[in-house]
Computed example of a mutant assay.
Amino acid sequence: MPRAFTPKVVTANALREGDAVWLTPEDDWSRDIARAELIEDEAVAQDRLLFAQAQADRVVGVYLAEAAPGPDGPEPVHFREAFRTRGPSNRAHGKQARR
């Protein structure tokens, strides 16, 4: 028996900068997961994934990641996704430098 679908967000890496990005309901990419579209329907998730994969001139490594609703928008469920929200891990670059 297949597992029940769990909420997802579409995520990728920005082609030029390499930052983790998430697909918004407005069909744009955000570096803030809280702005991502939380998808609760499997068919919609597959549609959004195909839409994102067609943007090879903007993003690479597109995939669906589990997420949960939070008070300010979607939040990561797994460690890997939480880690990606914090930015580069090698030095204080990008999101880490602003903190």
Rank of each mutant, 00 (worst) to 15 (best):
H93Y: 13
P71Y: 09
T11C: 03
D28G: 11
T6M: 11
G87K: 06
S30K: 06
Q55E: 05
R86F: 03
Y63T: 11
F79A: 14
E42W: 10
K95I: 10
W29T: 07
S30Y: 01
K95S: 03
Q96D: 05
E37M: 08
S30R: 04
D32R: 02
S89R: 14
A34W: 00
E26Y: 08
E75V: 15
T6R: 15
K8I: 06
P71H: 08
I33N: 00
D57K: 11
A45H: 09
D57W: 08
F83R: 07
P71A: 15
E75T: 14
P2Q: 00
P71F: 11
F51I: 07
R99I: 10
Q55K: 10
E17F: 11
E75L: 15
V60K: 07
F83G: 03
V77R: 14
P2Y: 02
G18Q: 03
F51Q: 14
R86E: 05
D28N: 12
G70C: 06
E66R: 15
K95G: 04
H78W: 02
R91V: 08
L38S: 14
G70Y: 05
R98M: 14
E26C: 05
E81N: 07
A56P: 00
V60R: 09
D57R: 08
D32N: 14
Q53C: 06
T24V: 03
E17A: 09
P25Y: 01
D72F: 13
W29D: 04
D27W: 05
L50Y: 06
Y63S: 06
A36I: 09
V9Q: 11
A52Y: 04
L64K: 07
M1C: 03
R48G: 04
R35G: 03
S30E: 09
G73E: 04
V60C: 06
R91A: 14
A54T: 14
H93F: 14
R84C: 00
I33Q: 01
E42D: 10
W29S: 02
A97H: 04
D32L: 02
D57A: 12
N90M: 07
L15Q: 14
L15V: 12
R98H: 13
D28C: 09
D19W: 07
A14V: 05
L15M: 01
Q96C: 01
P25D: 13
W29A: 10
D41Y: 00
R48F: 13
H78E: 12
G70H: 06
K8D: 00
A92N: 13
A52N: 07
E42T: 13
P71R: 15
E40H: 07
D72S: 10
V21F: 08
T11H: 09
A20Q: 02
G94E: 01
I33D: 00
R58W: 04
V62H: 00
K8T: 15
A92S: 14
D32K: 03
I33F: 03
G61E: 00
E81W: 05
F5D: 07
V59A: 01
D47F: 05
L38G: 04
M1L: 09
A20L: 08
H78C: 01
M1N: 04
G61M: 06
D47T: 15
V10K: 01
V59H: 03
N90S: 12
A45W: 07
A34C: 13
T6L: 11
L64I: 05
A52H: 11
A34Y: 06
A52V: 01
T6V: 15
